[in-house]
């Protein structure tokens, strides 16, 4: 552990400021709490919000998992994990079940999270109304007045034009019947998982916002009675582990454009393969490692 910096990098005053914002966020689920985000030693847009939230929550005994696109080995996930190993001296893991804190970008793990866990999301644009109304002054008013008509109009226009709600990720949700919230750019496939036993914390560094969902908070994906929300998902099974209930990445295999579908959650796939599940294009895990 690097002792040139404070535990988990941030100074104590900054952590206190973030911690106070987190407590208010938990007390007002789905509401975006402004916080004085700091300049981190990594670029804005690369998880500075998530990193600050994680840094404010970590305890020395934590076991941290970091994923990007569901995978532990994507370069930015590797980089963030290294950062906390260096500045927090915490243990890290790739195993979802073993982690006490999971920082994620763009996915919720497939395996159900448990009471002792915290899921920290990296959020680029926390304001669900931002693409309909660019002004922060206006969107803040809209949340205050619970004025979400614009969002319904947008979704309805999608249906009129495409016959579907044409939002496939960062699909807006309503929290406990009050705040409309951006779930971060997770695929809408993950939306139903947001009613979970773990605590969910969201950090948007550049936009200086923190928000939260306590366990078992009601999370409803916006829809219409005649056009109910559908989570979608691949029509195939995972080529490696044969999972049929997982979110799959499409991999182009050759110049002819042959496709293969594999779990985006690399740990979920590994656990299944260890348990002996083998997909159409897969081999037993031992052979793969060799």
């Amino acid at each position: 552990m690097n002792t040139e910096y404070n535990f988990a990098y941030l100074d104590e005053q900054t952590k206190r400021m973030i911690r106070r914002a987190l407590l208010k966020g938990v007390a007002i689920p789905g509401y975006q709490v402004p916080f004085a985000s700091r300049e981190m030693p990594m670029p804005y847009g690369w998880g500075t919000g998530g990193v600050q939230v994680t840094a404010a929550c970590l305890v020395p005994d934590d076991i941290l998992k970091v994923i990007d696109q569901g995978a532990d080995d994507t370069t930015n996930a590797v980089s963030i994990r290294k950062f906390f190993e260096k500045t927090g001296g915490v243990k890290v893991t790739e195993e979802t079940a073993k982690a006490t804190v999971i920082q994620t970008r763009h996915r919720i793990p497939e395996a159900a999270l448990t009471e002792g866990q915290i899921l920290v999301y990296q959020v680029p644009i926390p304001e669900p109304l931002r693409f309909l109304e660019p002004s922060e002054v206006e969107t803040r008013k809209m949340h205050a007045l619970e004025e979400y008509g614009l969002m319904h109009v947008k979704l309805y226009e999608d249906i009129a034009r495409h016959g579907h709600i044409a939002t496939s990720y960062a699909y807006p949700v309503k929290i406990e019947g009050r705040y409309v919230m951006d779930p971060s750019p997770i695929p809408k496939f993950d939306n139903p998982k947001m009613e979970m036993a773990a605590l969910q914390l969201f950090g948007a560094g550049r936009e200086q916002r923190i928000y939260a969902l306590p366990p078992y908070t009601q999370v409803v994906s916006l829809d219409f009675e005649d056009y109910p929300f559908e989570k979608g998902g691949a029509q195939q099974a995972c080529g490696l582990c044969a999972a049929e209930d997982a979110y799959l990445d499409e991999v182009i295999m050759d110049d002819a454009g042959t496709r293969m579908f594999v779990c985006s959650d690399t740990d979920y796939c590994r656990v299944r393969r260890e348990a002996g599940h083998i997909g159409e294009m897969g081999v037993p895990l031992a052979e793969d490692a060799a």
């Binding site: 670029p43 804005y44 847009g45 690369w46 500075t48 990007d68 696109q69 569901g70 994507t74 930015n76 970008r105 763009h106 996915r107 680029p124 579907h164 044409a166 496939s168 990720y169 960062a170 750019p185 997770i186 695929p187 809408k188 496939f189 550049r206 979608g232 998902g233 691949a234 979110y247 799959l248 990445d249 499409e250 985006s264």
Partner: peptide
């Protein structure tokens, strides 16, 4: 600005997959 503009070079394949399907 540079952080957010450049962050679109990070992997976005999960979201892109969702768009592909749609």
């Amino acid at each position: 600005a540079t952080g957010f503009v450049e962050h679109i070079k990070l992997p976005h394949y999960v979201d892109f997959q969702a768009e592909l399907e749609l």
